[in-house]
Protein backbone atom coordinates (compact mmCIF):
# COMPACT_ATOMS: atom_id res chain seq x y z
CA UNK A 1 0.00 0.00 0.00
CA UNK A 2 1.35 3.43 -0.93
CA UNK A 3 1.24 6.07 1.76
CA UNK A 4 -0.42 9.29 0.68
CA UNK A 5 -0.43 12.62 2.43
CA UNK A 6 -3.80 14.25 3.25
CA UNK A 7 -3.22 16.90 0.58
CA UNK A 8 -2.55 14.23 -2.06
CA UNK A 9 -5.71 12.48 -0.97
CA UNK A 10 -7.70 15.70 -1.20
CA UNK A 11 -6.23 16.33 -4.66
CA UNK A 12 -7.23 12.84 -5.79
CA UNK A 13 -10.75 13.33 -4.49
CA UNK A 14 -11.11 16.63 -6.33
CA UNK A 15 -9.84 15.01 -9.54
CA UNK A 16 -12.25 12.07 -9.17
CA UNK A 17 -15.21 14.36 -8.63
CA UNK A 18 -14.15 16.37 -11.65
CA UNK A 19 -13.77 13.24 -13.79
CA UNK A 20 -17.14 11.94 -12.62
CA UNK A 21 -18.81 15.24 -13.42
CA UNK A 22 -17.35 15.34 -16.92
CA UNK A 23 -18.43 11.76 -17.59
CA UNK A 24 -21.99 12.48 -16.40
CA UNK A 25 -22.21 15.69 -18.37
CA UNK A 26 -20.94 14.03 -21.57
CA UNK A 27 -23.39 11.17 -21.08
CA UNK A 28 -26.24 13.68 -21.04
CA UNK A 29 -24.97 15.66 -24.04
CA UNK A 30 -24.61 12.42 -26.03
CA UNK A 31 -28.38 11.91 -25.83
CA UNK A 32 -28.60 14.75 -28.33
CA UNK A 33 -25.65 13.67 -30.48
CA UNK A 34 -25.22 11.07 -33.17
CA UNK A 35 -24.72 8.17 -33.43
CA UNK A 36 -27.44 6.95 -31.10
CA UNK A 37 -27.43 3.37 -29.93
CA UNK A 38 -31.08 2.38 -29.66
CA UNK A 39 -30.49 -1.37 -29.68
CA UNK A 40 -27.89 -1.08 -26.90
CA UNK A 41 -30.28 1.11 -24.89
CA UNK A 42 -33.13 -1.40 -25.20
CA UNK A 43 -30.83 -4.23 -24.18
CA UNK A 44 -29.82 -2.29 -21.06
CA UNK A 45 -33.44 -1.34 -20.33
CA UNK A 46 -34.28 -5.02 -20.39
CA UNK A 47 -31.41 -5.96 -18.11
CA UNK A 48 -32.03 -3.13 -15.63
CA UNK A 49 -35.83 -2.92 -15.76
CA UNK A 50 -37.05 -6.44 -16.29
CA UNK A 51 -34.14 -7.92 -14.39
CA UNK A 52 -34.84 -5.85 -11.28
CA UNK A 53 -38.61 -6.25 -11.36
CA UNK A 54 -38.92 -9.27 -9.01
CA UNK A 55 -36.71 -7.79 -6.29
CA UNK A 56 -38.41 -4.39 -6.50
CA UNK A 57 -41.87 -5.97 -6.27
CA UNK A 58 -40.87 -8.05 -3.26
CA UNK A 59 -39.23 -5.12 -1.48
CA UNK A 60 -42.16 -2.78 -2.19
CA UNK A 61 -44.71 -5.29 -0.95
CA UNK A 62 -42.85 -5.95 2.30
CA UNK A 63 -42.22 -2.28 3.01
CA UNK A 64 -45.90 -1.40 2.43
CA UNK A 65 -47.01 -4.22 4.71
CA UNK A 66 -44.55 -3.31 7.44
CA UNK A 67 -45.54 0.36 7.23
CA UNK A 68 -49.18 -0.52 7.86
CA UNK A 69 -48.24 -2.80 10.71
CA UNK A 70 -45.93 -0.29 12.40
CA UNK A 71 -48.21 2.69 11.99
CA UNK A 72 -51.29 0.86 13.24
CA UNK A 73 -49.70 0.69 16.64
CA UNK A 74 -49.19 4.46 16.86
CA UNK A 75 -52.42 5.42 15.14
CA UNK A 76 -54.46 3.20 17.42
CA UNK A 77 -53.25 5.14 20.46
CA UNK A 78 -54.72 8.30 18.95
CA UNK A 79 -57.85 6.50 17.88
CA UNK A 80 -57.21 7.17 14.21
CA UNK A 81 -56.52 3.72 12.79
CA UNK A 82 -58.57 4.75 9.77
CA UNK A 83 -55.65 6.93 8.65
CA UNK A 84 -53.49 3.87 7.86
CA UNK A 85 -54.21 4.20 4.14
CA UNK A 86 -53.10 7.80 4.11
CA UNK A 87 -49.91 7.07 6.01
CA UNK A 88 -48.88 4.16 3.80
CA UNK A 89 -49.70 6.06 0.68
CA UNK A 90 -47.83 9.25 1.56
CA UNK A 91 -44.76 7.39 2.82
CA UNK A 92 -44.58 5.07 -0.18
CA UNK A 93 -45.18 7.66 -2.86
CA UNK A 94 -43.14 10.52 -1.46
CA UNK A 95 -40.24 8.55 -0.14
CA UNK A 96 -39.98 4.83 0.17
CA UNK A 97 -41.01 3.64 -3.29
CA UNK A 98 -38.21 5.64 -4.90
CA UNK A 99 -35.58 5.00 -2.23
CA UNK A 100 -36.23 1.27 -1.93
CA UNK A 101 -36.23 0.77 -5.72
CA UNK A 102 -33.16 2.98 -5.97
CA UNK A 103 -31.22 1.03 -3.39
CA UNK A 104 -32.26 -2.33 -4.85
CA UNK A 105 -31.25 -1.31 -8.37
CA UNK A 106 -28.03 0.23 -7.02
CA UNK A 107 -27.17 -3.11 -5.42
CA UNK A 108 -27.95 -5.03 -8.56
CA UNK A 109 -27.06 -2.74 -11.44
CA UNK A 110 -24.53 -0.12 -10.26
CA UNK A 111 -22.29 -3.02 -9.33
CA UNK A 112 -23.24 -4.94 -12.49
CA UNK A 113 -22.39 -2.00 -14.72
CA UNK A 114 -19.11 -1.36 -12.89
CA UNK A 115 -18.04 -4.98 -13.19
CA UNK A 116 -18.99 -5.21 -16.87
CA UNK A 117 -17.26 -1.98 -17.90
CA UNK A 118 -14.40 -2.62 -15.48
CA UNK A 119 -13.70 -5.97 -17.13
CA UNK A 120 -13.80 -4.28 -20.53
CA UNK A 121 -11.39 -1.66 -19.23
CA UNK A 122 -8.75 -3.97 -17.79
CA UNK A 123 -8.86 -6.32 -20.79
CA UNK A 124 -8.33 -3.32 -23.13
CA UNK A 125 -11.74 -3.76 -24.78
CA UNK A 126 -12.49 -0.09 -24.15
CA UNK A 127 -9.21 0.94 -25.78
CA UNK A 128 -10.01 -1.45 -28.64
CA UNK A 129 -13.37 0.23 -29.11
CA UNK A 130 -11.74 3.65 -29.30
CA UNK A 131 -9.11 2.24 -31.66
CA UNK A 132 -11.93 1.03 -33.91
CA UNK A 133 -13.30 4.56 -34.12
CA UNK A 134 -16.20 4.22 -31.68
CA UNK A 135 -16.77 6.45 -28.65
CA UNK A 136 -17.31 4.25 -25.56
CA UNK A 137 -19.13 7.13 -23.86
CA UNK A 138 -21.73 7.04 -26.62
CA UNK A 139 -21.89 3.29 -27.06
CA UNK A 140 -21.54 2.11 -23.45
CA UNK A 141 -22.28 4.94 -21.02
CA UNK A 142 -25.19 6.87 -22.53
CA UNK A 143 -27.38 3.79 -23.18
CA UNK A 144 -26.92 2.69 -19.57
CA UNK A 145 -27.70 6.14 -18.20
CA UNK A 146 -30.84 6.46 -20.31
CA UNK A 147 -31.99 2.93 -19.54
CA UNK A 148 -31.43 3.21 -15.77
CA UNK A 149 -33.13 6.61 -15.54
CA UNK A 150 -36.23 5.58 -17.47
CA UNK A 151 -36.54 2.11 -16.00
CA UNK A 152 -36.17 3.27 -12.40
CA UNK A 153 -39.05 5.66 -13.02
CA UNK A 154 -41.34 2.77 -13.93
CA UNK A 155 -39.96 0.47 -11.26
CA UNK A 156 -40.79 3.13 -8.68
CA UNK A 157 -44.38 3.39 -9.87
CA UNK A 158 -44.64 -0.37 -9.54
CA UNK A 159 -43.04 -0.31 -6.08
CA UNK A 160 -45.51 2.39 -4.98
CA UNK A 161 -48.46 0.33 -6.20
CA UNK A 162 -47.40 -2.97 -4.69
CA UNK A 163 -46.46 -1.11 -1.50
CA UNK A 164 -50.00 0.18 -1.26
CA UNK A 165 -51.25 -3.34 -1.92
CA UNK A 166 -49.02 -4.66 0.87
CA UNK A 167 -50.44 -2.04 3.22
CA UNK A 168 -53.94 -3.01 2.21
CA UNK A 169 -53.30 -6.71 2.86
CA UNK A 170 -52.23 -5.93 6.42
CA UNK A 171 -55.04 -3.40 7.00
CA UNK A 172 -57.69 -5.74 5.71
CA UNK A 173 -56.58 -9.06 7.14
CA UNK A 174 -54.52 -8.23 10.22
CA UNK A 175 -56.13 -4.99 11.39
CA UNK A 176 -59.63 -5.70 10.14
CA UNK A 177 -60.02 -2.30 8.42
CA UNK A 178 -62.54 -1.65 5.68
CA UNK A 179 -60.96 -2.03 2.21
CA UNK A 180 -62.95 0.79 0.75
CA UNK A 181 -61.86 3.17 3.45
CA UNK A 182 -58.21 2.16 3.03
CA UNK A 183 -58.12 2.84 -0.68
CA UNK A 184 -60.17 6.04 -0.43
CA UNK A 185 -57.92 7.65 2.19
CA UNK A 186 -54.83 6.34 0.38
CA UNK A 187 -55.95 7.91 -2.86
CA UNK A 188 -57.38 11.16 -1.55
CA UNK A 189 -54.41 12.08 0.59
CA UNK A 190 -52.12 12.31 -2.44
CA UNK A 191 -51.61 15.78 -3.84
CA UNK A 192 -49.62 17.01 -6.78
CA UNK A 193 -46.44 17.86 -4.82
CA UNK A 194 -46.34 14.34 -3.35
CA UNK A 195 -46.62 12.69 -6.73
CA UNK A 196 -44.20 15.14 -8.29
CA UNK A 197 -41.63 14.46 -5.59
CA UNK A 198 -42.14 10.71 -5.80
CA UNK A 199 -41.76 10.54 -9.55
CA UNK A 200 -38.83 12.91 -10.02
CA UNK A 201 -36.70 11.16 -7.41
CA UNK A 202 -36.30 7.94 -9.43
CA UNK A 203 -35.03 10.00 -12.37
CA UNK A 204 -32.25 11.37 -10.17
CA UNK A 205 -31.54 8.01 -8.57
CA UNK A 206 -31.45 6.15 -11.89
CA UNK A 207 -29.03 8.71 -13.24
CA UNK A 208 -26.81 8.33 -10.15
CA UNK A 209 -26.81 4.52 -10.38
CA UNK A 210 -25.72 4.41 -14.01
CA UNK A 211 -23.19 7.25 -13.93
CA UNK A 212 -21.54 5.99 -10.73
CA UNK A 213 -21.47 2.41 -12.08
CA UNK A 214 -19.95 3.60 -15.37
CA UNK A 215 -17.45 5.87 -13.63
CA UNK A 216 -16.06 3.10 -11.44
CA UNK A 217 -16.06 0.75 -14.43
CA UNK A 218 -14.14 2.92 -16.87
CA UNK A 219 -11.63 4.01 -14.22
CA UNK A 220 -10.96 0.46 -12.98
CA UNK A 221 -7.33 -0.62 -13.05
CA UNK A 222 -5.22 -3.46 -11.81
CA UNK A 223 -6.70 -6.63 -13.27
CA UNK A 224 -9.49 -8.72 -11.78
CA UNK A 225 -8.80 -7.39 -8.28
CA UNK A 226 -9.33 -3.88 -9.53
CA UNK A 227 -12.65 -4.88 -11.09
CA UNK A 228 -13.77 -6.39 -7.79
CA UNK A 229 -12.88 -3.16 -5.99
CA UNK A 230 -14.71 -1.06 -8.58
CA UNK A 231 -17.81 -3.23 -8.23
CA UNK A 232 -18.05 -2.83 -4.46
CA UNK A 233 -17.24 0.88 -4.55
CA UNK A 234 -19.89 1.51 -7.19
CA UNK A 235 -22.55 -0.12 -5.04
CA UNK A 236 -21.54 1.66 -1.85
CA UNK A 237 -21.03 5.09 -3.44
CA UNK A 238 -24.25 5.03 -5.44
CA UNK A 239 -26.28 3.95 -2.38
CA UNK A 240 -24.78 6.68 -0.23
CA UNK A 241 -25.30 9.25 -2.97
CA UNK A 242 -28.94 8.21 -3.37
CA UNK A 243 -29.59 8.71 0.35
CA UNK A 244 -27.83 12.08 0.43
CA UNK A 245 -29.47 13.39 -2.71
CA UNK A 246 -32.81 12.14 -1.36
CA UNK A 247 -32.44 14.27 1.75
CA UNK A 248 -31.44 17.48 -0.01
CA UNK A 249 -33.90 17.08 -2.85
CA UNK A 250 -36.74 16.46 -0.40
CA UNK A 251 -35.76 19.54 1.58
CA UNK A 252 -35.56 21.62 -1.59
CA UNK A 253 -38.95 20.53 -2.88
CA UNK A 254 -40.58 21.02 0.50
CA UNK A 255 -39.34 24.59 0.55
CA UNK A 256 -40.27 25.31 -3.04
CA UNK A 257 -43.68 23.64 -3.03
CA UNK A 258 -44.67 24.34 0.57
CA UNK A 259 -45.30 20.69 1.36
CA UNK A 260 -45.67 19.75 5.00
Amino acid sequence: MEIRTPSELAMETVLSVQEYTILSWEAVLNIFRKPRYLADTLLQADSIGVGSLPVVVLAGLSIGAVLALQSSNTLQRFGSLSLTGQLVSLSMVRELGAVISGLMVAGRNASGIASELGTMKVTEQIDAMRALGTDPLKKLVTPRVLAATIMLFFLTIIADLVGLAGGWLVSRFALGLDSNQYWTTAWQSLEFPDVFMGLTKPLLFGFIIATVGCYYGVTAKGGTQGVGRATTQAMVSSSVMILMVDFFYTKLLMTLMHVH
Binding site: T119, T123, E124, Q125, A128, A131
Partner: peptide, 11 residues
Protein backbone atom coordinates in the same frame (compact mmCIF):
# COMPACT_ATOMS: atom_id res chain seq x y z
CA UNK B 1 -5.63 -0.96 -37.19
CA UNK B 2 -4.40 -2.22 -33.84
CA UNK B 3 -3.97 -5.77 -32.64
CA UNK B 4 -3.95 -5.81 -28.83
CA UNK B 5 -1.68 -8.03 -26.78
CA UNK B 6 -4.48 -10.01 -25.15
CA UNK B 7 -6.60 -9.64 -28.31
CA UNK B 8 -9.17 -7.41 -26.53
CA UNK B 9 -12.03 -9.04 -28.42
CA UNK B 10 -15.51 -8.01 -27.27
CA UNK B 11 -16.64 -10.95 -25.11
Amino acid sequence: GMVFQESALFD
